[in-house]
Computed example of a mutant assay.
Amino acid sequence: MIAFRQIRSSDLAHWRTLSPQLEAIARAHSADHWVPAGAYTGWVACGDDAIPIAASFACCRSGELLSIFVRREFRGRGIGRELLRQAEAWLRSHGWSEMTADASMLPEQFLIHHQWSREADTAGRLKKIHSGASIPLEEHWLEDAETGCGRLIRLGRVDKFN
């Protein structure tokens, strides 16, 4: 069985086993950025041993999908599609109706298959535009000091009317 969840800073040690690209992205940013309600986040797919077999990363400051990777032996099972769906939903929840990606860091044909397109004015860039309304969410990480259990809470933001 495959389980999907948001990354934790403790997962960063496993990136080397997945892809040098993922490890480079993870190390390029401080560990504080990778907390569930941080500027950068990601999602992992774990097998029965709870070790990540796939991951995706995104940045809510730039609206960018940073990377997505599935170990070769697990490809073709819909894992990448679910990780992409999670990243897109998270970016939309931060108000991004147009998302971008660096084609050199991602499986370009996979993204094109999932309605991404090449940017005409910028070589090596991909984008996806969602025409539907986005629902801005506010994220809070709550952790019980006694048990160490944590939970990401997403609340709908309501703009004040004048």
Rank of each mutant, 00 (worst) to 15 (best):
73 E>L: 07
146 E>Q: 11
67 S>F: 00
20 P>R: 00
99 M>A: 03
57 F>Q: 00
43 W>R: 01
56 S>H: 00
46 C>N: 00
1 M>H: 11
97 S>E: 06
32 D>W: 03
121 D>G: 13
155 L>E: 08
51 I>N: 06
25 I>A: 01
27 R>M: 01
136 P>F: 04
108 E>H: 06
116 W>N: 02
5 R>Y: 10
57 F>H: 04
154 R>C: 15
8 R>D: 08
86 Q>D: 03
45 A>R: 03
120 A>W: 09
109 Q>L: 11
30 S>D: 15
152 L>W: 14
89 A>P: 01
21 Q>T: 04
38 G>P: 11
137 L>E: 09
80 G>N: 03
40 Y>N: 04
129 I>S: 12
5 R>E: 06
35 V>D: 02
147 T>V: 08
123 A>V: 13
136 P>A: 05
56 S>E: 00
10 S>G: 08
114 H>L: 13
20 P>E: 00
156 G>F: 10
93 S>E: 12
159 D>R: 09
37 A>W: 10
37 A>N: 13
62 S>W: 13
24 A>D: 01
35 V>T: 13
133 A>C: 07
119 E>I: 11
4 F>I: 14
117 S>K: 11
56 S>D: 01
17 T>A: 15
145 A>Q: 08
41 T>C: 15
76 G>Q: 06
152 L>P: 14
115 Q>N: 12
141 W>N: 05
8 R>V: 03
54 A>M: 05
154 R>I: 04
161 F>R: 09
162 N>P: 15
13 A>T: 07
82 E>L: 09
47 G>H: 06
16 R>H: 08
104 S>K: 09
58 A>R: 01
160 K>R: 12
91 L>Y: 06
65 L>F: 05
127 K>H: 15
48 D>W: 04
3 A>G: 01
92 R>W: 06
36 P>E: 02
119 E>F: 02
18 L>P: 06
77 R>P: 00
133 A>P: 09
53 I>N: 02
25 I>V: 11
45 A>P: 11
68 I>D: 03
52 P>L: 04
79 I>F: 14
18 L>K: 00
40 Y>G: 01
127 K>I: 03
94 H>N: 08
2 I>T: 14
73 E>A: 13
15 W>G: 00
157 R>D: 06
31 A>C: 04
40 Y>W: 10
113 H>A: 15
58 A>K: 00
161 F>D: 09
87 A>P: 03
161 F>G: 05
12 L>D: 00
104 S>G: 09
44 V>W: 01
151 R>T: 09
3 A>E: 10
14 H>N: 10
158 V>P: 07
93 S>Y: 04
33 H>P: 00
89 A>Y: 05
115 Q>H: 15
10 S>C: 12
83 L>C: 09
